[in-house]
Design a protein around this nucleic acid. Structure first.
Lengths: 230, 230
DNA sequence: TCGGTTGGTGAACAACTGTTCACCAAAGTA
DNA sequence: TACTTTGGTGAACAGTTGTTCACCAACCGA
């Protein structure tokens, strides 16, 4: 081997579905935001084993089957694309939370249902979750900050939900926020473990789920012993 | 601007301290592992705002003030360098833990002392900690796995230490491991927050410290309410 | 003193990069 | 119908990349 780009995929092919080398018959071009979607999806696919700050514009356009210059019709830099992905990920996450909020019952049951909902969601949006997990500590500041902000927001929303539960309903806000932060941190960690286990040892997924439930239960027990604002 | 490398530092300068363009008078060359150290330090510096899978060999050698080919005298690929950094980081961390283990007193005091030790350590080895924090979910599999393994090892060591404390000393091992995992996760998260706060709002460091202590205390309270092996 | 090993050098290679440009087809608007 | 905007194209640019190579100076053991 004599030479190699920064990472894999050295081929120069474009896409199997474009007509010819000339500018003849683009045919089904515009179609609203199709190219934009293709760029996002291509990037998401590449980000499975690449970090955002190593994602090349040419790579993305190649993965989307589109000319390099087309990128600039939709984004100024690669960061902008990353921010859109962050937004997409947390929009669906918020949807999940809204669904889960509607049916809260007893605490024990709630833990199991919450974890199950998370598992389902990670399965359905794996690429987005992996992206978030990886870029949470990203070298790309704008994206890192955006993720941090969303997680913080998520935790405060959870805190207001917790305020409706017995035991903790009389805690002062800072204590509630702390508990919410602990729970969110646990959920994030669980999501990361799920992604790993899904790709490496799918048969061990139940262990991860059980462990997550156990930890959440531990936190719930803690709430019974905790004396707020010492 | 017409063109730009993958990221900053476009200049082609070498190093202010090398004699001339010819091969004249290298003078103080070999000196055992000096170049190797320079490569590691240069990489560590670059990794402050770059992720490992975007770290170029040429960048590293440039930062070390050394010819590109010199890299291959010490490492085969960039991953190998990363693995050495992981090793260095956890070696010093283990040292920290060994020191802390020698003087355990009462639980409350222990929490504060542990957090203080962590704070001191993060200050003293910031670059290493940031590297570990970032690459914990790295796109470079070997490094990611190495970090995960070290953290797991760290947690089991902590579990055996916990076994000497009151209350938990009669817990079955899995429960101890769970608690140790929770604590380690909290420590990792705290380290990350410390790094951020040190660089962005140094005056708010006490808040992060206090919050970490609070969370640890919460976990300790949880231990009093938890009934093992349900 | 000699021969080999270690660790450095600069030059060269092809490959890939981000970005700009003039150009053009289709869709929307008057 | 004509005109403008939108979103695509390929070619070109200079700059950077990983890796190999022959070469050489210093050190090491005999």
């Amino acid at each position: 081997m004599t030479s190699r780009p920064r990472s894999g995929r050295s081929g120069g092919e474009r896409s199997p579905s474009r007509p010819g080398p000339g500018r003849a018959a683009p045919g089904r071009s515009v179609d609203k935001g199709r190219t934009r979607r293709a760029l996002l999806d291509g990037a998401l696919r590449l980000l499975e084993d690449r970090s955002l700050d190593n994602l090349g514009i040419r790579e993305v356009t190649r993965a989307a089957g589109v000319a390099p210059a087309a990128f600039y019709r939709h984004f100024e830099r690669i960061d902008d694309l990353g921010l859109v992905l962050v937004d997409e990920a947390f929009t669906t996450l918020r949807q999940l939370m809204r669904d889960a909020r509607d049916d809260v019952d007893e605490a024990e049951d709630m833990i199991e249902r919450s974890v199950a909902a998370l598992v389902r969601h990670v399965h359905d949006h794996r690429a987005h979750y992996r992206f978030i997990a990886r870029e949470q500590y990203s070298a790309v500041p704008t994206v890192r900050l955006a993720i941090r902000r969303e997680i913080r927001l998520f935790a405060t929303e959870l805190a207001t939900d917790l305020a409706r539960l017995p035991v903790v309903d009389r805690w002062p806000t800072p204590d509630l926020v702390m508990l919410a932060d602990l729970i969110v941190g646990l959920m994030v960690e669980t999501a990361r473990r799920l992604i790993d286990v899904i790709e490496e040892n799918p048969e061990r997924e139940p262990e991860v789920v059980a462990e997550a439930e156990r930890r959440l239960r531990y936190l719930a027990f803690g709430a019974t012993a905790w004396r707020p604002r010492p």
